[in-house]
Design a protein around this nucleic acid. Structure first.
Length: 824
RNA sequence: GCGAGAGUGGCGGAAUUGGUAGACGCGCUGGUCUUAGGAACCAGUAUCUGAUGAUGUGUGGGUUCGAGUCCCUCCUCUCGCACCA
């Protein structure tokens, strides 16, 4: 190794040199300009957890290649980086180390910024932002208030998982075995007021515009479409017997409404109390509700509990049949969806069927294949397909689809129902009872009620001193200094809102702030209009739904608030695969974590980047392989030595006896490579095949010693091209080699080489000769050969003759420039 | 259960519109140079076979002169959704 080191390039000196130069010269700083087309490439910004992991390395390497490539292609490229810096880990670390979350977070950011710089990513660091800083979240608070004034923000009471000991709300995934994940004490259900964004107002647009996102993976679009979950159907009122009230239901199958035999409502249904209080059924129902709610928290999400329910003792009336329908409370009815009440049609819905069989409720089939009645006793499952109506009054004989429309129309006419669209998507609850988040800028005044903070008062900042100790987990609500304020309307003493915002809020608009990081408004419209939308967004598939949906929602809100003029934030989306090792996701517990710092000191950034790109196409998982990294490093060293030798020989003015043929070979391969690399990048960012093409070209140059003799200028030109093609992936190395070859300009100023189709064309083709579809021979022929001549040559070939074996030739198929198949 | 995607050497992965399967890299084998080599370089490397040849892209079938690629059957794996009325 010691002796061999002279054959190895000094990556650490080279990388340091170029990183320093890029930093000093602010090479990647950009501004809006009219003479160049803009290109905005963005990678999902990281949570500053402490150090960069291999997933980041991969993600940001891909983004950097795109950025550098697009610059060579003449674009004005915006490539920013920042920090998704609010969140629970900082709070936990603060409790553990008895410091302020800001201290932990900011020092993590410093460390990770250095790591990113060591990797040589071409960010415009002047635009860096951290969401935990008041200079960022003040604008978010402003947007919150503007959204509030537009009616897009509201408060409502919801049931939440509550930990008494921690005095905080827990997300479902923080409830482990019915207990708090942190203190292990039991979790209770509690009604709490929380703040919500009215994302459902945008449900239709969020759904519609999915069709225009041609640059997004189909998988992500499908996931979002399912998440929004639009369905159309009938909203219908069933009057309750002995009451002024009626029970509202939503159904997507109005054609089955004559088959209703009972009604199921959710445990949390608002009318339930009224239906049962004082009745003989009350006790049993309440017991059932209690049992169901506790089971709901405890239950393993992967299994579906058996359908259960209990009769409420009350009836409602099917307005279509005027029949009395018993009302049940059932464990499978969701309060969050539709109206929280379901008309049960056991013959045509599997859940209702199971429920009816269990409690021996009647089953009435009203949809059959031919419109004849069937014996429901014989059914062993619900019949859910559409068909012809029967036992449905004057709708008999009509097909399901037509009947759906007519039944809705009928309900509308008679005034007990209407057509309705229902979404699975629910409003976005953004309240968090946490310390390390952006404070919600609202004030509770005893006389004026809920009032937004005055804009001049923003930012509402978090207290500077340490947030809390272990015994005191309810952060802002326990800080009299934070809470105390005056009402902006009546100037009387009032209380600040103590909830902070979901951290998804920060990441919902950071991409727009990058366009105008210093703006004294939430956004500078002119700058944002220039840069938005993001042309290429790159990140993990794990954000396919929430982050991307929220960002799309915010973009539309920002548009409607007049800040920007685009409706969609990300024109193209690339979801890269995970980095795995030994077939599994890297994790401390598995002991298969690769530390980027170790790799950087051992091989340098260029090698790490090269391997990350070479080992797999970006959308697939990448299997990390130490020997593969070694291989990538070897390739760079080989290239280094070849160029060094070439430079020496040029300096010595070595004359090589060359032939035009050899030079033409390398010239041709060079143009083929440019074409291949360019199309691999443009089509789908398949850097792995682009790199392998460059390796092939380089392998050809090193055949010099054995097969070919290339002239110095030809060889030099070839190396030059290799350096430009490789530059986006391996920028320090290529910049250095570029100078070594005697260039005085910088690679950054280079333009991507033009390929020449004419020069790339092969002169000699290898034609495959088949007999009956089996390869029997290969022929070298000149490119322009006619089919007839080719056919003659193939038939004359000795091996082909041997397999024809004097049998009569039935047919000869000639595929231009490819093959000839002789069928006998 | 529903939906989507994927199954190619020892490994990561390549293969326009159906037209040379295994590019490129790793690993492995042999060699050269060396005191040595885990360096560098050269040669080889799907399987079976003495070569000629035969077989080969998860399984079984089909279309075709020709199928990794198109159609059908089944198997396996991964991901997403999972009582959404």
């Amino acid at each position: 190794m010691a002796q061999g080191s002279e054959h190895r390039y000094d990556f650490s000196a080279i990388e340091r040199k170029w990183q320093k130069k890029w930093e000093q010269e602010a090479t990647y700083r950009v501004e809006e300009r009219s003479d160049k087309e803009k290109y905005y490439v963005l990678e999902m910004f990281p949570y500053p957890s402490g150090r960069i992991h291999m997933g980041h390395v991969r993600n940001y390497t891909i983004g950097d290649v795109v950025a550098r490539y697009k610059r060579l292609r003449g674009y004005n490229v915006l490539h920013p980086m920042g920090w998704d810096a609010f969140g629970l880990p900082a709070e936990n670390a603060a409790i553990k180390h008895n410091t302020h979350p800001a201290v932990w977070t900011l020092s993590n950011i410093d460390y990770m910024r250095d790591q990113l710089k060591l990797l040589g990513f071409s960010y415009d660091w002047s635009r860096e932002l951290a969401t935990c800083l008041p200079e960022y979240y003040r604008w978010e608070q402003r947007l919150f208030i503007e959204m509030y004034e537009k009616g897009l923000v509201y408060q409502k009471i919801t049931t939440v998982n509550w930990c008494e000991s921690c005095q905080t709300v827990l997300a479902n995934e923080q409830v482990v075995d019915d207990a708090c994940w942190r203190c292990d004490l039991p979790v209770v259900q509690r009604s709490m007021s929380g703040w919500f964004f009215r994302i459902t107002d945008y449900a239709e647009e969020l759904l519609d515009e999915l069709d225009n996102l041609s640059g997004w993976p189909e998988k992500v679009i499908t996931m979002q479409r399912n998440w929004i979950g639009k369905s159309t159907g009938l909203h219908c009122e069933f009057p309750i017997v002995d009451s002024e009230l009626s029970l509202a239901i939503f159904t997507t199958r109005p054609d089955t409404i004559f088959g209703v035999t009972f009604m199921s409502i959710a445990c949390e249904h608002p009318l339930l109390d009224e239906l049962i209080s004082g009745s003989e059924y009350e006790q049993a129902v309440r017991a059932f509700v209690e049992k169901t709610t506790t089971e709901k928290i405890r239950r393993n999400l992967s299994e579906e509990p058996e359908k259960e329910g209990v009769f409420t003792g009350r009836y409602c009336i099917n307005p279509f049949t005027n029949e009395q329908i018993p009302i049940y409370v059932a464990n499978f009815v969701l309060i969050e969806y539709g109206t929280g009440a379901v008309m049960a049609v056991p013959a045509h819905d599997q859940r209702d069927f199971e429920f009816a069989r269990k409690y021996q409720l009647p089953i009435r089939a009203v949809i059959t294949e031919d419109g004849n009645t069937i014996d429901t006793d014989q059914m062993d499952e619900a019949r859910t397909e559409p068909g012809i109506l029967t036992q449905s009054g004057h709708f008999d004989g009509i097909d399901s689809i037509t009947a759906q429309h007519r039944i809705v129309a009928h309900a509308q006419e008679k005034n007990f129902g209407r057509a309705q669209v229902t979404y699975r998507l629910r409003d976005w609850g953004i309240s968090r009872q946490r310390y390390w988040g952006a404070p919600i800028p609202m004030i509770h005044c005893p006389s004026c009620g809920v009032v937004p903070a005055a804009l001049e008062e923003l930012p509402i900042t978090l207290p500077d001193d340490e947030p809390h100790s272990k015994s005191d987990c309810a952060p802002l609500s326990q800080r009299p200094d934070f809470i105390a304020t005056t009402c902006p309307r009546c100037q009387e003493p009032a209380r600040r809102e103590t909830d902070t915002m979901d951290t998804f809020v920060e990441s919902s608009w950071y991409f727009a702030r990058f366009a105008c990081p210093l703006s004294k408004e939430p956004l500078d419209t002119q700058q944002a209009d220039y840069w938005l939308p993001v042309d290429q967004y790159i990140g993990g598939i794990e954000h396919a739904i929430l982050h991307l949906l929220y960002a799309r929602f915010f973009t539309k809100v920002l548009r409607d608030l007049g800040y920007i003029n685009v409706s969609e934030p990300f024109a193209n989306l690339l979801t890269q695969g995970m980095v795995i090792k030994d077939g599994a996701k890297m994790s401390k517990s598995k002991g298969n974590v690769v530390d980027p710092d170790d790799l950087l000191s051992q091989y340098g950034a260029d090698t790490v980047r090269l391997f990350s790109l070479f080992a797999a196409p970006p959308e697939k998982d990448l299997e990390w392989n130490d020997q593969g990294v070694e291989g990538a490093h070897r390739f760079l060293n080989r290239l280094y030595r070849a160029i060094t030798i070439c430079v020496q020989k040029v300096a010595e003015d070595e004359v090589v006896e060359t032939t035009d043929v050899s030079d033409r070979i390398i010239h041709r391969k060079m143009h083929q490579t440019i074409k291949k690399v360019q199309s691999d990048i443009e089509a789908n960012f398949h850097f792995n095949t682009a790199i392998s093409a460059i390796m092939e070209l380089f392998n050809l140059t090193s055949e010099e010693r054995t097969t070919h003799r290339f002239s110095r200028p030809a060889l030099r030109q070839c190396y030059q091209t290799i350096l430009v093609l490789l530059y986006p992936m391996v920028p320090h190395f290529c910049s250095e080699m570029w100078h070594l070859l005697g260039n005085t300009t910088e690679l950054e100023q280079q333009t991507w080489p033009e390929y020449d189709d004419e020069a790339a064309r092969e002169e000699l083709l290898t034609i495959v000769a088949q007999v009956c579809g089996k390869v029997r021979s290969r022929l070298q022929v000149p490119a322009g050969i006619s089919d007839d001549t080719l056919q003659e040559m193939v038939l004359a070939d000795a091996n082909v003759q041997r397999f024809i074996d004097n049998k009569p030739i039935r047919k000869v198929i000639v595929v231009k420039n490819k093959l000839v198949n002789v069928v006998v």
